[in-house]
Nucleic acid binder design. Structure first.
Lengths: 119, 119
DNA sequence: CCGGATCCTCTGCGATACTG
DNA sequence: CAGTATCGCAGAGGATCCGG
């Protein structure tokens, strides 16, 4: 696998810390726009720097879109999955299914109350 | 997503460096047993320490199996995907398909000659 | 409220050498 | 041949402050 391999390229940013969590948080509900501060609260523990960096990356990858409400003060930034991003969720789902099929010790997801995933 | 989340648990080891490459190398051909030294050669640049560690992890996860030929000298260790491991390949395939669908700048895989992947 | 700038910590990984 | 042991570093990510 070289640097131009599609698997390599996608894995190299999707595997970064917090990235999948951000995608999953944006997937929750029915794809409404979600505020920066809301995501930050949900992703307990993420630093603002990290969140900003990841959102920028995901936007650069075309997986999320951003809008800013300049009429309010303070400013509100909101984010939402693009079609590309939504389509990636199925891969995360397949990871979940694979794990539930072959691994038997995931108590939380097995009970179907893994609230974060909502897959 | 907490520590018991199935997505979290699987992602946390599959995302490690070299791990997917090892799985793909074992997937090449028709699932024959492959020697440690052979894998090492194919994964150009991997250190023996890394390869041993990853193989051990993958075995612990039930994705590969190991056999040792003690009748020869020096010893031969061979590795092979389990059913669990083979079933994971489909996820890597779906990552490739997603990338080719939404990203247009992956020259190598687009030409279907991304030899490493062989997906 | 959003998120950039700085500084710092910590660990994953590489390089090298060595052994049964 | 198939690993293990030791050392060291780069870079990812955390903590904190600041500014629009």
């Amino acid at each position: 696998m070289n640097k131009n391999c599609s698997v390599y390229k996608t894995a190299s940013f999707i595997c970064k810390k917090w990235t999948m969590l951000i995608l999953l948080e944006l997937y929750r509900g029915k794809g409404e726009w979600k505020r920066y501060s809301h995501i930050k609260t949900k992703l307990n523990g993420i630093t603002p720097k990290m969140l900003s960096a990841r959102l920028k990356e995901l936007k650069g990858e075309g997986m999320i879109k951003k809008r800013v409400d300049v009429n309010t003060f303070p400013i509100r930034s909101e984010y939402c999955l693009t079609k590309t991003g939504k389509d990636f969720i199925k891969i995360i789902k397949s990871i979940k299914e694979w794990t539930l099929k072959w691994k038997t010790k995931n108590t939380d997801c097995e009970k179907n109350d893994c609230e974060m995933c909502e897959l």
